[in-house]
């Protein structure tokens, strides 16, 4: 029975990773930017959620929509004023710009908000659903459900709507998309905004589970990269299932090997995926190297 319990907690943890990674993947796939500051966007989202809770008494689930809007705007501003001016520079430049943003935001938070761990108190945060001997945490189930929902909605949006198709067109071939009359810059703004909005949702849903502190983003960003590469760049379902796989790996390696080795194990998996199939397990057949270059 314990192994089933481990599998369940692994999958639920994976849901959280998926939720964080899908936004990162959208930005990576469309704008072709490795956004190292994605973890800091999560941190900001959680602080905003916490702020709504302390000042207005809003439950994190209620204020989630406000957090999403805030993060969407923040993402659009980041894209417009930081990323857009350096879009045509080499990949290295872009990496170090987002890395700089990540370091700056993290330490700005450290200076202004102190390193204290802040958390909210809700009635449901410790509630569990018991199925026989199995216990399922409700906030984690909610986050998992949201991850499923986001994956489906995002898929439908990208496949069925005109805007979604435009986003995919830009991701595939931005010159051709431009020639077809698509406003590439606006699509970039939108993609960065949606990607950030998704991490806003993740932050709001994580608030009842984790406490927030300035370096919380750093603990998630590397996992998010592992998930994105594992699942395949640009593939939303890839990011979703990649998250689940990493969640399972983390939970199982804690049982099979040693909890101290779980990070080492998923980074080894990450390296192996990069070497054997750099385009990811669920890739759309797009060469990862090509994306890495341009």
């Amino acid at each position: 029975m314990t192994i089933v319990q481990t599998l369940i907690s692994g999958i639920l943890l994976g849901g959280i990773y998926s939720l964080i990674s899908m936004g990162l993947n959208l930005i990576l796939g469309v704008v072709r930017i490795v956004n190292f500051a994605h973890g800091e966007l999560l941190m900001i989202a959680m602080y905003i959620s916490f702020l709504f809770y302390t000042t207005m008494g809003l439950d994190p689930y209620v204020s989630a929509i406000l957090v999403i809007i805030c993060l969407f705007l923040l993402g659009v501003l980041t894209q417009r004023f930081m990323i857009q001016p350096i879009l045509d520079t080499p990949a290295s430049t872009k990496i170090f710009a987002t890395l700089g943003l990540s370091i700056a935001l993290q330490n700005l938070a450290l200076m202004t908000l102190s390193a204290n761990h802040l958390s909210v108190k809700t009635s449901y945060q410790t509630s569990v659903i018991n199925i026989g001997e199995l216990a399922v945490s409700i906030p984690r189930l909610v986050a998992f459900g949201a991850a499923v929902g986001v994956a489906v909605v995002l898929y439908l949006f990208l496949q069925k709507t005109l805007t979604g198709k435009a986003i995919r067109a830009v991701a595939m071939q931005k010159q051709a998309a431009f020639l077809m009359g698509i406003n590439v810059k606006r699509i970039y703004l939108l993609a960065f905004g949606i990607g950030s909005g998704l991490v806003g949702l993740a932050g709001a849903l994580l608030m009842p589970i984790y406490s927030v502190y300035p370096t919380i983003g750093a603990s998630f960003i590397l996992i998010a990269f592992v998930v994105v590469v594992l699942g395949g760049m640009g593939s939303m379902f890839g990011a979703f299932f990649g998250g689940l796989i990493i969640g399972l790996v983390e939970a199982l390696s804690g049982v099979i090997f040693d909890p101290g080795l779980k990070e080492a194990i998923y980074f080894v998996i990450f390296i192996m995926v990069l070497l054997v199939r750099p385009s990811g397990i669920f890739s759309l057949g797009k060469g990862a190297e090509e994306v890495g270059l341009k």
Binding site: V34, A91, D258, G260, F267, P278, V291
Partner: peptide, 25 residues
């Protein structure tokens, strides 16, 4: 070195993380 650009960078980060966690372990 089979990987380029960003992918190379991510790989070096991953190797560093593996070695750091092994040192801790």
């Amino acid at each position: 070195f089979r990987l380029r650009g960003t992918y190379f960078t991510l790989t070096t980060i991953a190797f560093a993380e593996v070695i750091r966690h092994l040192t801790l372990y």
